[in-house]
């Protein structure tokens, strides 16, 4: 028996909206500790990793580990029927479920929707991602980072990110010209201005902006984002989800051979 009730169902809607341009189908693994999901884009350049802890749910029960193969497109169609203020419950009684039940309830419990989504059997090709001690970590406003990526992608498809003790520089070079945006450490008490740099080792890495713009669809999940980098390593972009878990994106760099 598996049942997970999320008080703020809108969080689940936002997660699916954030990943639906990146991955087509995912395996959600449910265990006693919560839900986890890892999936790569078709080019194996980017990866999304979701972890939702059981104690972040209003109710959570998972008698034995199960894997739920979902089509993101079909999941989106079902979630469109959930109101932003609804609770969302996922449920199945079977051990090898062929479908997953969804219940959407409004605050007054005066409207209850029930859907059943057919499940897919997907081969679980998952990457072993070691816990990395990143040498450059940047915490900043997710809206600000999203804006920087959007603005620079009108000049080039590629951005170079260079960190130093006191600032991070986003540089682009394209047919029309070049540009850079330098953001300095800023302990402002205003969220949108605060920038926190932890630079043990400076890095200079190059990434495709179209992936960063896809990752930034997760801005509605968290007002801050962290950029985690080490030389010659994929970038890890993390959106923490209050009291529930985190949504992480990994992006392989572009490297001159």
């Amino acid at each position: 028996m598996f049942e997970a009730k999320l008080q703020q169902g809108v969080i689940f809607k936002k997660i699916v909206d954030a990943i639906k341009d990146l991955v087509k189908s995912v395996n959600i693994d449910a265990s006693t500790s919560g839900l986890s999901m890892q999936a790569m884009d078709s080019a194996h350049v980017a990866l999304v990793s979701l972890k939702l802890n059981e104690n972040g749910f209003k109710d959570y029960r998972c008698d034995r580990p199960i894997t739920l193969g979902l089509s993101i497109e079909n999941l989106s169609k079902i979630l469109k029927c959930a109101g932003n203020d609804d609770t969302i419950t996922l449920q199945t009684d079977e051990e090898e479920p062929s479908s997953l039940k969804f219940f959407f309830e409004n605050q007054q419990a005066s409207k209850i929707s029930e859907f059943s989504l057919n499940l897919m059997s997907l081969d679980s090709e998952s990457l072993g991602i070691p816990d990395t001690d990143y040498s450059s970590v940047i915490q900043m406003s997710s809206a600000e980072f999203s804006r920087i990526c959007k603005e620079l992608s009108s000049i080039s498809e590629t951005v170079e990110i260079e960190t130093s003790k006191e600032s991070v520089k986003f540089s682009v070079q394209g047919d029309i010209g070049a540009g850079s945006i330098t953001v300095k450490n800023n302990q402002s008490d205003k969220d949108v201005d605060r920038v926190d740099l932890q630079i043990d080792q400076p890095v200079k890495l190059t990434f495709a902006l179209r992936y960063l713009n896809m990752f930034n669809k997760a801005v509605s999940l968290s007002s801050t984002v962290s950029l985690n980098m080490s030389e010659e390593n994929p970038l890890m972009v993390e959106y923490k989800i209050d009291d529930l878990g985190s949504l992480r994106f990994y992006l392989a760099p572009k490297i001159s051979d």
Binding site: M40, A43, H44, V45, A46, L47, E125, S126, L127, G128, I129, P130, T158, T206, A208, N233, P234, Y250, A252, P253, K254, I255, S256, D257
Partner: peptide, 14 residues
């Protein structure tokens, strides 16, 4: 010209 790498250059399939 920089080449886009793939994640399996950095991480092993588990």
């Amino acid at each position: 010209q920089k080449q886009q790498k793939r994640l399996n250059t950095f991480y092993e399939f588990s």
